[in-house]
Amino acid sequence: MTTLTAVIRRHPLVTFFVLAYVIGWSPWPFGIPGTAMLPVAPLVAALIVAAVTGTLRDLGSRMIRWRVPWYCYVAAVGLPLAVILGTAAIHGGASWSGVVWTDVALLFALRWVNPMDGPLGEEPGWRGFALPRLDALHSPLASAAVLGVLAAVWHVPLVVSGQGNEVGWIGIPTTFVITFVYCWLFRRSDGSVLLTMLLHIVQGTIVSETLGYAGDDLRAMLTLGLVAWTVIALALILLDRPAWRSRPLDAPAPAGRTELTTPIVQP
């Protein structure tokens, strides 16, 4: 156990990703309907590694960090709404009369506390734990790209097993592209997981299916969504270059790999 603990402390980032994949993909080989993967895996992986490396307090503080610039709240709510409303306006055929707003409100509330859903299951891991450590090793743009690839590939079992039938393979590049948006928001909100969770929750609460799209119309909407998120990601990279040029102040200092296990202190 001492040896295992030492390995985790020496390689916390690698350990996190290995655990996220192993735990997340563990149901896949068994072919159990509706359980191709466990969405809670990044959260569990982050909690395990943070407990061993003594960084649970930092992770917890990021999850409740709400004092952030006002425009971060606007972006977290406004960007996903702009994408779904904009793509619906371009494609047409949205059925607003079929939207049950009480169900939408209930879903919005439940997604905050359900670890088997993407926001709580993924954000503390991808953004709260992994991103600051990637930022210690790479430039902000490069670390977002690395995280985008790893997070996108992590979702592959959903597509291969057919569990993500409605979304299909287009969800993989969409996950990669939108990771840049999440990383931008995380950095501009002083490392707040709470804000990335808000973005994730809004993004998944009102979706194309909510507006009655199905079949070819749904696939067209998802394609438009990929284009929209790509445009937003490029705009954030090109128009807010300072956010991608330097290592965030609260990223662990890259003074050797073992330095990454040191608790991160928010200035």
Rank of each mutant, 00 (worst) to 15 (best):
L4A: 14
T5D: 06
A6M: 09
I8S: 12
I8N: 11
H11I: 07
L13Q: 03
F17C: 07
V22L: 15
I23K: 01
P33T: 06
G34E: 08
A36Y: 00
L38G: 03
P39R: 14
P42G: 03
V44D: 03
V49H: 01
V49P: 00
A51L: 06
V52G: 08
G54Y: 02
G54K: 01
T55D: 10
L59K: 01
G60I: 07
W66G: 11
W66R: 11
W66D: 05
V68W: 00
Y71F: 14
Y73N: 06
L81C: 15
L81G: 12
I84E: 04
I84W: 05
L85Q: 06
G86N: 10
T87D: 05
A89T: 14
I90N: 07
G92S: 11
G92C: 08
A94E: 02
G98T: 14
G98F: 04
V99Y: 05
D103K: 12
W112L: 07
P115T: 10
D117S: 14
G118H: 10
E122V: 11
E123F: 04
E123C: 10
G125P: 02
W126N: 09
W126A: 10
G128L: 01
L131N: 02
L131E: 05
L131R: 02
V146C: 10
A151Q: 11
V156E: 00
P157E: 03
V160K: 11
G164R: 01
W169L: 04
I170N: 01
I172G: 00
T175G: 04
V177R: 00
V181Q: 03
V181D: 01
C183H: 04
V193S: 00
L194S: 06
L194W: 04
T196D: 03
L198C: 04
H200V: 06
H200R: 10
V202C: 09
Q203R: 11
Q203A: 15
T205N: 06
I206P: 00
E209Y: 10
T210W: 00
G212Q: 03
A220Y: 02
T223S: 15
L224Q: 08
G225L: 09
W229I: 13
I232M: 12
A233G: 15
D240A: 11
P242K: 08
W244P: 04
P248M: 11
D250S: 06
P254F: 14
R257Q: 13
T258C: 09
E259P: 04
L260S: 07
I264L: 15
V265R: 08
P267I: 14
